[in-house]
């Protein structure tokens, strides 16, 4: 293997790793606040790519109508439950109405407008998933929550197939520039992916460290009961955590959708690898998750180079001792 090849593989692994890390962060946020392993995040990623691609092609994406319908159902549910507040009205009436209007009258084929609109359409699916799937079972066992998440994955993959068909789609890249580093051509999009990922990690640190909402989320994560006692609404925190995760997923979809075509069923495996990274991060630590994400990305890239047919066998078999080591280390450190 020449240094050139190695660098090219590394660059490839880093780009994938950045996306895995974004998803890992979403998973970490949701898990720490709600105990849900949000497997379907990868499906939201795919929905985001497909939504933006359809907008950029001049169409009106089915996800918009689905959002309107679900938001209406959520609103009716709140009204029936007598819990209507200004916030629920804003979230489930004004927001979807505004999006629909923006889609209808806005310049939706404009790449940037489409991207922002697409992210705005997909993000509410996070809180909706919480509202309709996980909140009603918030006290269930971890395993039951995990199974719910798996089931939701199949539902969302089905939605993707029904709304967008089986073919993959790409979105316009943020930049088509290419940077030459010696013999190595680095696409501007790869750089943008890594840069945005880094910015987002920084942004989330700030969000959890400096904002009231972030602190409340952190408080709910560390002590559910305590948070309730000081007046933090756990349901509200859950909705916010899911919104953040869905936002991160949608953003990832726009980023990676410019590098590679994404189909309705592409997202699950990306999400799975984000899950791997999150677990390596012990479902708690962002730096460790970042290391895990890059590790998975680079390992995959190297495995594909050496023995592509055996890649999954090798990468996932290697993962087993890593997990064993992590689990034992965590247990050793966790003893009182």
């Amino acid at each position: 293997m020449t240094p050139f090849v190695f660098l090219a593989l590394l660059q490839d692994g880093l780009t994938s790793g950045a996306i895995y890390l974004l998803l890992a962060m979403g998973l970490l946020i949701v898990f720490s606040v709600t105990r849900v392993i949000f497997v379907p995040q990868g499906d939201l990623l795919a929905l985001a790519t497909l939504t933006v691609a359809q907008l950029q092609a001049g169409g009106v994406p089915g996800t918009l109508w689905l959002l309107d319908a679900l938001a209406l159902a959520a609103l009716l549910g709140e009204i029936a439950g007598g819990r209507t507040t200004r916030r629920t009205l804003a979230a489930w009436l004004i927001y979807p109405a505004a999006l629909t209007a923006a889609c209808w009258f806005g310049p939706r084929t404009d790449p940037w407008f489409a991207m922002l609109l697409g992210i705005a359409i997909v993000t509410p699916f996070g809180p909706l998933a919480w509202r309709f799937v996980f909140r009603p079972a918030a006290d269930a066992s971890l395993l039951a929550l995990l199974i719910l998440a798996m089931a939701l994955h199949f539902v969302l993959a089905g939605v993707g197939m029904v709304l967008f068909g089986p073919d993959g789609a790409s979105v316009a890249p943020l930049t088509s520039a290419t940077l030459m580093a010696g013999p190595l051509a680095i696409s501007g999009q790869s750089l943008a992916v890594v840069a945005i990922c880094a910015a987002l990690v920084g942004g989330l640190r700030w969000f959890f460290g400096a904002t009231l909402t972030g602190k409340a989320l952190r408080a709910t994560a560390s002590d559910r009961l305590g948070a309730r006692l000081v007046g933090i609404d756990a349901a509200e925190s859950g909705a916010r955590a899911f919104a953040l995760a869905a936002f991160v997923a949608a953003l990832s979809g726009v980023l990676i959708g410019a590098v590679t075509p994404i189909a309705y069923d592409t997202g699950f495996e990306i999400g799975l690898k984000g899950f791997v990274a999150a677990i390596i991060g012990g479902l708690a630590s962002y730096p460790a998750a970042a290391a895990g994400a890059v590790l998975v990305g680079v390992l995959e890239s190297l495995g594909s180079f050496w023995a592509s047919a055996w890649r999954d066998v090798i990468v996932f078999a290697l993962l087993i001792p890593v997990l064993a080591w992590l689990s034992l280390r965590q247990r050793a450190a966790g003893e009182p």
């Binding site: 971890l142 791997v276 999954d312 066998v313 996932f316 993962l319 087993i320 689990s327 247990r331």
Partner: peptide, 27 residues
């Protein structure tokens, strides 16, 4: 390995061998 693992480590470990064996059957 698995007998010593707990919680999500075990779940993910099982995902890992699940995928690994599937790929092995196909390869």
């Amino acid at each position: 390995i698995t007998a010593r693992l707990s919680g999500h480590f075990l779940a993910l470990c099982s995902v890992a061998w699940g995928i690994s064996f599937y790929a092995l059957f196909g390869t």
